[in-house]
Amino acid sequence: MRRLALAVFGLCFYSSYASAWWDEGHMRIAAMAWDQLTPAARAEASRLVRMNPQYFSWMIAIPQPYDGSARDLDRYAFIRAAVWADDIKEMKDYKDASTKDNAKTETAGRNIGYSDKLIHGYWHFKDIPYQRDGSVPPPADPVDAATQIKAFTAALPKAAGMSDDIRSYDLVWLLHLIGDVHQPLHSTALFTKEFTAKWKAQDKPDQGDRGGNEIMVTPANGDPVNLHAYFDGMFGGYSTVYGAIFDTFDKSGNPYLPPADGTEAAITDPDVWVTESNKLAIDTAYAAPVLDANGNVVQQAELTRQYETKARNVSKLQIPLAAARLAHLLNEALK
């Protein structure tokens, strides 16, 4: 009952944010990636995570492990750090209303470490337009999840000459963003004339359906939710680190989810990752009954068993794939 209550609390608390997979999914990706790191990468990642401003808060709050085993502080911090990029949305220091923070400003793609107090919400996605009914989407943003994954990856090796403060900052963003781009609706925005008219009436730039945030659906539990949140919450909402570990591995330490395909895991180009997710969004997230036979949005569509089963199966493959790619990236960057 406690786990169910926490999941419901998380669903309510985070439903207004575009934070892929919510806490549980991001931490499960990090937990699976940790097990695939080389000793050298694990040691360096742990050293860098300790420099995060929230590290001591994480350590103070650490509970006894669910199975009573000895605390592995480095593993705990690595998994917990995967959620930091969402945590800052609620931190007072990151709520400077006088700071214009969008993808088209000069500061949008900067990489200056923890002195940067911008939330950078546009770093969490890359919306490839999915065009319907002849609508014309706006030009793509110059800064997005893919551009930042590339920038942070390039800066992470010691040979790049960046300070440890920047490298730590880049690492915790990578822990999060690689999970983000493997959530199909962080790769796609549906554009229709209906959405264009809606944004125009509000005197705002055309954002399409904002990756499913403008489409309401009703899953089998009967509780209406926007389509984006439905996919974000596929693995639950709020969770502790040990809760995420418990949900990821059996008593022998083997993951419940199937391992990633080796060929797919070896793909290192973030643009390819986003393109893959975009295809999954079109084939899965925007499938019937979300869109009707004519390609029109069905608001408040009742999701079928077939739809929900496919959505969950796709998500189950994306989590270990994101983990394998994250581990590969860190093993190369932190040799």
Rank of each mutant, 00 (worst) to 15 (best):
K126H: 15
D165G: 10
Q148H: 11
H176I: 01
Y169R: 00
N52H: 13
D164Q: 10
V136H: 05
F78L: 07
L171G: 04
M162I: 06
F78G: 02
F125D: 00
D165M: 11
D72M: 06
R42H: 12
R110A: 07
F152D: 09
D165Q: 10
S168G: 11
D74F: 02
I149V: 13
D144Q: 11
P137K: 00
L73V: 15
I79K: 08
G109T: 05
A81K: 00
P63V: 08
A70N: 10
A108G: 06
V172L: 13
Y76Q: 07
D93A: 15
V49M: 05
R71W: 03
F78K: 04
A103H: 00
K89Q: 14
D96G: 07
Y55L: 05
T153S: 15
L156W: 10
N111V: 13
T147S: 14
R80V: 00
T147A: 07
I112D: 11
P157V: 12
Q54D: 13
K89C: 14
R50D: 00
D93S: 14
F125A: 11
A154D: 15
P139F: 09
K89W: 13
G179F: 04
K126F: 09
S46I: 04
A154W: 11
E106W: 10
W58I: 06
K95V: 00
A61L: 08
A45L: 06
L118R: 14
D101Y: 05
A103D: 03
A40Y: 02
D72C: 07
D164N: 12
A41R: 09
S57D: 04
Q148L: 09
Y114P: 02
S46C: 05
L48N: 10
N52V: 14
D144A: 13
A155R: 11
K95I: 00
F125N: 07
K104Y: 15
D116G: 02
S46N: 04
S46L: 04
A160D: 04
D170H: 12
M91Q: 09
Y66G: 05
A85R: 10
D133S: 00
D165L: 09
A146F: 01
I112L: 11
P65D: 08
N52A: 15
A159Q: 14
G109N: 11
S57W: 07
N102W: 14
Y114T: 08
R50C: 03
W84G: 04
Q64G: 04
G134C: 01
D67W: 05
M162T: 12
S46R: 02
K104H: 14
G161I: 15
Y122R: 06
Q131G: 01
T99A: 15
R47F: 08
K100W: 12
R71C: 12
H124Q: 10
A155L: 12
Y169G: 01
Y66D: 06
S57H: 10
L174N: 06
I178S: 05
D127L: 08
G113Q: 03
D164L: 06
L177K: 03
P53E: 03
D141I: 01
M59D: 01
K92C: 00
D87I: 08
N52L: 15
L175A: 02
G121Q: 10
A81N: 01
I60M: 07
S115T: 05
G179D: 03
A77W: 03
K158M: 12
W84I: 06
L73A: 15
I79S: 07
V83N: 10
G179A: 04
D170K: 13
K104N: 13
K117G: 03
I166G: 04
D165W: 11
Y55C: 10
A151G: 05
I166F: 09
